[in-house]
Simulated assay, not measured.
Amino acid sequence: MRVAVAGAGAVGRSIARELVRSNHEVMLVERKLEHVEPESVPDATWVHGDACELSLLEAAELQTYEVVISATGDDKANLVLSLLAKTEFGVRRVVARVNDPRNEWLFDESWGVDVAVSTPRMLASLVEEAVSVGDLVRLMTLRQGNANLVEVTLPDNTPLAGKPVRKFDLPRDSALVTILRGGRVIVPQPDDPLEGGDELLFVASAEVEDDLRRAVGLTP
């Protein structure tokens, strides 16, 4: 897969390294010359210039990339690039970094953003997930806010212990995607029994989260 990453600071370089390790073809675009360090990600294609300039994106043939990641430290630049990528170049998937949580409401499909990643919100969710047992924790928003990745850690004394997955009466617009148990990642099958301490990962719309709480034995 061809992925264009705007912003070659610590965040952008880290993303690029991980993508290269996964055998993706990566282009890094960086405006500040002092941040252009090809030796830091030698297998990526480096472009020096402003990712918000249409002429640069045309020269870089952005339309040939399946994914654009707007990872600069400037929310305005991330929004502009996201909009250009989606509307001018028809990029299928646009992921944008949110630096200031107060701007998160802007990062939606009207600006060409498919997935908005807010580091402060994610860190807060991870902290909440680490200390929350028996409650539903929202980890990430997906697809312009239409669905969320949510987690529930079942308490040791859960009444669901021993019951198979097929006994779940899940609300519409929700799905159990993974069970984390100890060091295992379990793709749930209908007859798999649940255990106390299981971490359940669901994809669900925000409107059914209360129903989902009830389905796993929690009080909304």
Rank of each mutant, 00 (worst) to 15 (best):
E58F: 13
N148S: 13
V127P: 03
V137W: 00
W111T: 05
N103H: 13
V91W: 00
D135W: 00
K163A: 01
V5P: 01
G73E: 11
F202P: 01
V68W: 00
L79I: 12
E18V: 11
D156M: 12
F202L: 05
R121E: 09
L180W: 07
G217T: 09
F168D: 00
L194A: 05
D198C: 07
A85K: 00
D210T: 05
V113P: 00
R181V: 09
N103K: 08
V150I: 09
T178K: 06
V117M: 10
A96V: 10
D191E: 13
A16V: 05
P38G: 09
R92Y: 06
V177A: 04
D169Y: 07
Q63C: 08
L176K: 06
N146L: 09
H24E: 14
V95D: 00
R214D: 04
G7L: 02
R17P: 02
L33S: 11
L84Y: 05
E66M: 12
P190I: 08
S70C: 10
V5G: 02
L79D: 02
L154S: 02
Q144P: 00
D192H: 12
W111K: 00
A124G: 11
A124N: 08
R184P: 03
A130P: 01
S110Q: 12
V152L: 08
V3L: 09
V11R: 09
G12L: 01
E128G: 01
N99E: 10
L123A: 11
D75K: 05
P171M: 08
S125D: 06
S118G: 12
W111M: 11
R93T: 07
E39K: 10
N103W: 03
E207R: 15
P171I: 01
A77F: 04
E195A: 14
